[in-house]
Nucleic acid binder design. Structure first.
Length: 324
DNA sequence: AAAGGCTCCAACCGCGTTGCG
DNA sequence: TCGCAACGCGGTTGGAGCCTT
């Protein structure tokens, strides 16, 4: 294609070379030359795992010329790969800002929340998780979330599973986040004695809400609280929750005075204490100190209709299991 | 120690969309 | 307007490494 030839001239400072997929070999390094020569010999595109040499070629080329035009980039860089393959390798692995390692509780919470409103829009969800790729989010969902749905004998997209996520999983994640935040900021907030969930604020319109627990009063029974992820707060979580996109069927018409806020890595999480709550028009209640014990015990204590709790093996649903 | 099963994730595939001639 | 090529997204697969028996 002429467009490609012009691009090659521009980016390589040389005349365009023949365009056969196997024979195009505008190379800038010895390694690239070797790869290109091999491609001429074998006349075939390479597939499968990338080698360190290929990674080096791709990174080197993109650092000099930028990304985009992946098919021509692959040829210019002397890679025997399709443009698709180069793009995927760069976006999912080689890009400097790709975050590696376990998905954090904050990220898990965000994924669960965003998936509940957007479904399998992995790319869109990943945009709200800096450094994470759609592939990573998708893999997390398939390996972790779907596994739990399977253990619950329900479809991952079913209302039932969504309820469990909102009523049990997300509150639990939130508590963990807050606990970590509390411990890390304990020194900074010296003397405050901040409980896991504290402070007051009103319920913002369009917020995502679900129950969590207030363990502030140690020794006493835990209070059920409604949690909202507010669009009015800052950072990543806020950006994920624009009011126009918030579509949960969670409603808490009246918010009690004992509401809570936790700021985790700049992500403001809010909780509002009250005596009851409704999600999707139904009253769900999580009783007492339900946050200790197994996953199935939590579920058994949760008034989510139609779950066959007797089928669960407690060992399958250890609370630690829901974290990475 | 070895074999089989399982988990996780990198990579591929197919299809819809977009842009350009 | 049409056709083609490239791009981007979501679904799926293959295999390496880990775990269990």
């Amino acid at each position: 294609m002429d467009m490609d030839k012009e691009y090659y001239k521009a980016c390589m400072g040389m005349e365009a070379l023949p365009m056969s997929p196997a024979g195009f070999s505008a190379v800038t390094t010895e390694a690239a030359m070797a790869v290109a020569t091999a491609s001429e010999d074998e006349g075939d595109l390479k597939r499968g795992p990338w080698t360190a040499e290929e990674d080096m070629l791709l990174v080197d080329y993109i650092s000099k010329h930028g990304e985009g035009r992946w098919n021509s980039l692959a040829r210019c860089a002397g890679l025997r790969r399709t443009g698709k393959s180069c793009r995927l390798r760069w976006l999912n692995y080689l890009r400097p800002d790709v975050r590696r390692g376990n998905i954090t509780p904050e990220e898990q919470l965000l994924i669960l929340d965003l998936h509940s409103r957007w479904g399998n829009r992995w790319s869109k969800i990943a945009q709200r998780l800096p450094g994470r790729t759609d592939n990573e989010v998708k893999n997390y969902w398939r390996t972790r979330v779907q596994k739990h749905a399977k253990q619950l004998h329900c479809d991952v997209n079913s209302d039932r599973f969504r309820d469990v996520v909102r009523q049990v999983w997300m509150p639990r994640l939130l508590e963990r986040i807050q606990a970590e935040s509390s411990s890390s900021s304990a020194a900074a907030a010296a003397g405050v004695g901040v409980p896991a969930l504290t402070r007051a604020m009103s319920s913002p319109a369009g917020a995502s809400q679900y129950h969590c627990f207030d363990h502030a009063s140690s020794g006493g029974p835990s209070r059920k609280v409604a949690v909202t992820m507010s669009p009015d707060t800052s950072s990543t979580l806020r950006s994920s929750l624009s009011p126009a996109e918030t579509s949960h069927g969670a409603h808490f018409p009246a918010w009690g005075a004992a509401t809570a806020t936790a700021n985790v890595d700049g992500s403001m999480m809010q909780c509002a204490g009250r005596e009851g709550g409704a999600i999707g028009g139904d009253q769900y209640v999580i009783h007492g100190d339900s946050l200790s014990g197994s996953w199935s015990e939590l579920l058994a204590a949760t008034d989510i209709p139609d779950f066959e709790f007797g089928n669960f093996d407690d060992n399958l649903w250890s609370l630690e299991d829901i974290y990475c």
